[in-house]
Amino acid sequence: MTSIANFIQALTKYEFLQSALMTAIMVGIMSGIIGSFIILRGMSLMGDAISHAVLPGVAIAYILGINILIGASIFGILAALLIGFVAAHSKIKTDTSIGIVFSAFYALGFILISMAESATNLHHILFGNILAVSDSDMLTTAIVLCIVLTFVIFFFKELLITSFDETFARTYGLKTQMMHYALMLVLTLVTVSALQTVGIILVVAMLITPAATAFLWTDRLETMLILAAGIGVITSIAGLYLSYSFNWASGPAIVLVAAALFLIFFVCSPKQAFIRFKRLKTKAVLAHD
């Protein structure tokens, strides 16, 4: 077993591990922030759907040799539009529409990937391989992080009001549909970055679990965003350590850490008050005796 000291020593020695760490930190920040808006808008399922729906874009980008961000963005937005279109033009509710569209996109992507590349690559796309991050991957991730931060800083009040009270935003003339699709576009970019660390299947966990953990602990949106980003970073680093030390796939390692943190916060959260509740109950029992 590798101790933490060994891990740190390896970090100073191996460049691939440094790249992995940098990428993990950046992905942790961006997914925590965007994930916060996803859960507040009640769009966890949509987050899952978009992250799966980018797969054909990833495959086509591989085949054509173009930047993976471009291919993924096109399919991510296409899926978001299609989901909206089906829900708006039929009796079908949004969650059903999401189910139809994303599974179709995912299936298409799966076949395209297996046609285009070896099985190893598919495995990495599905479950993440943070230890194989290249310099260009890292640069792309850094660009996405800049886009995410710029987007959230410049449109903070628009994101807040469309998440909290969309009707109100529409009455003062805000283009709420534009905000929705802008967020979906940023979400696809985050998905592509998170794909390297946790893989497509588990992206949703990176988006919603740290954000949900933060949500339990604060009543302010600004605090929630910072907390979610912080939890995302801790999760990613701990996951990377486990992945390196035990040779686990990085995706499942990171996601399990995220879930463990959520569990701890859930039990201790002031909003849940499990612990306080228990104490009161004990008191009540004593009083009864």
């Binding site: 507040l40 009040k157 628009e158 807040l160 009001i161 998440s163 909290f164 009270d165 109100f168 935003a169 003062y172 003339g173 805000l174 949500f215 604060t218 009543d219 302010r220 949106l221 605090t223 929630m224």
Partner: peptide, 19 residues
């Protein structure tokens, strides 16, 4: 209205200035 949204009373009133 989502009553669990992480926002306080003052910030809700502040959204009135957004337009």
């Amino acid at each position: 209205i989502d009553l669990t949204f992480p926002i306080n009373v003052l910030d809700v009133v502040l959204t009135g200035t957004y337009g």
